[in-house]
């Protein structure tokens, strides 16, 4: 009698235990699936929201340079051009700097300095985007318009290609200034990734090179870089992904003009900046709002591809 009562008790306890596990595992699984659904919902909502624009303009939405709210004609070409151009110039500026910082933090700096300097660089990534916008607008733009741009324009005057690439007037704002701010913003991300992958090089490889008399730079060039090459490209792609979608900082300094500027000092637009700037004047249900959402969809697709490549390249090194 007592034995059966005991076993019944054990049975219920085991049952509740099992159901506790089942509930927790179920909750974990549901959360995991929720993240998948979240990404799906973001893509789907942007696509559905942008559908009227895709429907009205077809594929020419991507190639059309017009953005004319008066006649309800919208094209994405200028914004896509601005987004890609500013991001690429930003990388051209940021990658060598980030490499220098990572090289310094892993091989050159005295050990006691590595943590504080590394933290300072990481804090650069923590500064909110809008602060970069204000800093860019109030510090970099005057510097560009008064000092740098006039000098550059004067220097390149009369030299065929460079003359058009760096043509005036020196507004201070524009594609190049936006690229500069973006470069500062992605620098810490690329530098931190590079530092982390440089640290994965087995010390014995580097020590063997030092042992046969290689200099620090030779170790970097012949051991560390070949060993981490793929991950370094992954880190750069991560920086590109960040630069493509950056909004507030670019909004302050891009100049917000919807035409393709041949001069890098000319004003322009990026997808993110035009969405942020034009959204307040886009009533719900209008074709303009649909066009902005369609732009968002395009930005998402570009970012997704870049970030996916970055992750695939970084995977073997960072183990995630």
């Amino acid at each position: 009698m007592s034995q059966t009562a005991l076993s019944a008790h054990q049975l219920t306890s085991r049952k509740s235990r099992l159901s506790g596990d089942a509930i927790f595992a179920g909750a974990a699984l549901v959360s995991g699936v929720f993240v998948l659904l979240l990404l799906g919902a973001i893509i789907l909502s942007l696509f559905i929201g942008g559908w009227p624009a895709f429907h009205a303009f077809g594929l020419s939405f991507v190639t059309n340079v017009d953005w004319d709210p008066v006649q309800d004609v919208f094209g994405a070409a200028v914004s896509i051009y601005g987004t890609v151009l500013t991001s690429i110039i930003a990388l051209v500026i940021a990658v060598p700097l980030a490499f220098g910082v990572a090289f310094y933090l892993t091989e050159v700096a005295p050990t006691w300095l590595r943590r504080p300097v590394g933290t300072a660089i990481e804090l650069l990534a923590a500064v909110p985007s809008i602060i970069y916008g204000m800093w860019g607008f109030y510090v970099i733009v005057p510097l560009m318009s008064q000092t740098i741009q006039p000098a550059v324009i004067e220097t390149f005057e009369g030299i065929p290609v460079l003359e058009t690439l760096f043509a005036g007037p020196p507004f201070g704002t524009g594609l190049f200034t936006a690229s500069l701010i973006l470069a500062v913003m992605v620098l810490p991300f690329i530098a931190a990734t590079m530092r982390d992958v440089f640290l994965t090089v087995p010390p014995v490889f580097k020590e063997s090179a030092y042992g046969v008399g290689a200099t620090t730079w030779e170790v970097m060039r012949s051991i560390v870089i070949p060993y981490t090459r793929i991950s370094v490209v992954g880190g750069i792609m991560l920086g590109l992904g960040r630069a493509l979608g950056e909004t507030m900082a670019v909004t302050f300094v891009i100049g917000n003009t919807n035409r393709i500027a041949t001069s890098l000092f000319g004003p322009g637009n990026t997808i993110a900046s035009i969405v942020a700037l034009e959204f307040p004047e886009s009533p719900a249900g209008s074709l303009k709002l649909a066009s902005l959402l369609a732009l968002g969809f395009i930005l998402f697709v570009i970012s997704f591809i870049v970030l996916a490549i970055s992750r695939v390249l970084l995977k073997p090194r960072t183990g995630g």
């Binding site: 993240v35 979240l38 990404l39 973001i42 942007l46 991560l238 992904g241 960040r242 493509l244 979608g245 950056e246 909004t247 993110a272 969405v275 942020a276 968002g296 930005l299 998402f300 970012s303 997704f304 970030l307 996916a308 970055s310 992750r311 995630g320």
Partner: peptide
């Protein structure tokens, strides 16, 4: 990981 780096404006 993609959401971690996805543009916040989106």
């Amino acid at each position: 990981d993609v959401l971690l780096s996805a543009p916040s404006i989106l």
